[in-house]
């Protein structure tokens, strides 16, 4: 267990700069999720920490000491690979004991620790099985036990649940949370599933194109993202072009105005989550007229998609009650953003 610091880490592969100075500070025992679209450099960051990818500039410190000079086998990290990489010629117990054997521990102590690790991931009755005869979820747990049994300073997980189906993934999320609570090891979990990131991590680091854009607690990140890109990437978002008038009001597309203090006059983008868009049958103060294009049922709620002035795409959540008599496709509705949940972003210079 230790603190992990990435300080302006740069990685260049095959002549391409993949990481452009990634900085991240993970506290002892904390679980941070690296979230970002495919190809943004999440795996590369993990591999740089593990020592499989050379770092061209910057510094990586574990427990305050630089690890850049250490080869992978001396960094004392626990890795869980996306394909689990369980050794097919070893039983579950031998797989889990591998790291302890490499550390030259004696048989009795290995057997004891392997049994504990098996109990932790609730696989005690599978010790003598070979990986080929395990289910996906069981393999995942063996990989986790194998990485944890060596008491790593940092646990690194690359898309650990990516190969599992939806239901198993939900169950394993709960398991992972429990295990992290019991073991308390500093953890970095790479994922492109935002639900996984938001539900598992103490903090989420959002990454775009080789850069960590924002690191925040999940609730804060979702409710008050600092950048438009993060707002757009996380969950569903309305990004509405608007203008701050000289008298401090926000003029929405279609002409409606809502009072708003504190912003400089000029063009802005309003960010608002669909669940904070009220659907009104008639025009109200600060509402935008829009034509319903689609209604999608999503289980716990439903989403209404509509087209506002000048082709502006808008979305709003429909409550189960509202779904009893939903607006018809093609009908005009009036969507009103809740001023309490509005976020103002600077308009990108065109």
């Amino acid at each position: 267990m230790a603190r992990l610091e990435l300080d302006r880490v740069e990685v260049t592969l095959g002549g391409n700069r993949i990481l452009h100075g990634v900085s991240l500070d993970v506290a002892d025992g904390e679980c941070v999720a690296l979230l970002g679209p495919s190809g943004c450099g999440k795996t590369t960051t993990l591999r740089a920490i593990a020592g499989f990818t050379p770092v061209s500039a910057g510094e990586i410190r574990i427990a305050g000491r630089s690890v850049l000079g250490l080869p992978p086998h001396k960094r004392n990290l626990g890795l869980v690979f996306q394909d689990y990489a369980l050794f097919p010629h070893m039983t579950v117990a031998q797989n889990i004991g591998y790291g302890l054997r490499m550390r030259g521990e004696d048989r009795a102590s290995i057997a004891k620790q392997v049994a504990e690790a098996l109990a932790l991931v609730r696989l005690s009755d599978m010790a003598e099985r070979y990986p080929a005869r395990l289910s996906g979820g069981q393999r995942q747990r063996v990989a986790l036990a194998r990485a944890l049994v060596i008491k790593p300073d940092i646990l690194l997980l690359d898309e650990p649940l990516g190969a599992l189906d939806r239901k198993l993934r939900d169950a394993m999320q709960v398991e992972l949370k429990r295990i992290h609570r019991e073991v308390g090891v500093t953890t970095i979990i790479v994922t492109h599933d935002q639900e996984e990131a938001l539900s598992l991590a103490d903090r989420v680091a959002v990454m775009f194109a080789g850069d960590i854009r924002e690191v925040e607690r999940p609730a804060t990140l979702y409710a008050r993202p600092k950048s438009r890109a993060v707002m757009d990437f996380l969950g569903e978002a309305n990004l509405i072009p608007a203008e701050v008038t000289a008298d401090g009001a926000l003029r929405l597309p279609g002409g409606a105005e809502i009072p708003h203090g504190g912003a400089k006059p000029g063009l802005v983008r309003l960010g608002i989550r669909p669940e904070h868009m009220a659907i009104l049958p008639a025009p109200g103060p600060g509402s935008i007229a829009a034509c319903v294009t689609e209604i999608v049922f999503k289980g716990a709620h439903a989403s209404l998609y509509a087209e506002g002035p000048a082709g502006l795409a808008l979305s709003a959540s429909l409550s189960p009650a509202a779904l009893e008599a939903p607006p018809a496709i093609g009908e005009t509705v009036h969507l009103r953003p809740d001023p309490a949940h509005l976020i103002l972003f600077e308009e990108d210079p065109a």
């Binding site: 499989f52 992978p72 086998h73 004392n76 626990g78 996306q82 790291g99 490499m102 550390r103 990485a147």
Partner: peptide, 20 residues
């Protein structure tokens, strides 16, 4: 990933080679 898994578990390059 097999060789890398062995290395991450503390096997030097040669042991990773012979073990996996």
């Amino acid at each position: 990933s097999f060789v890398e898994a062995a290395q991450s578990l503390g096997a030097g390059p040669w042991r990773a080679l012979f073990g996996t």
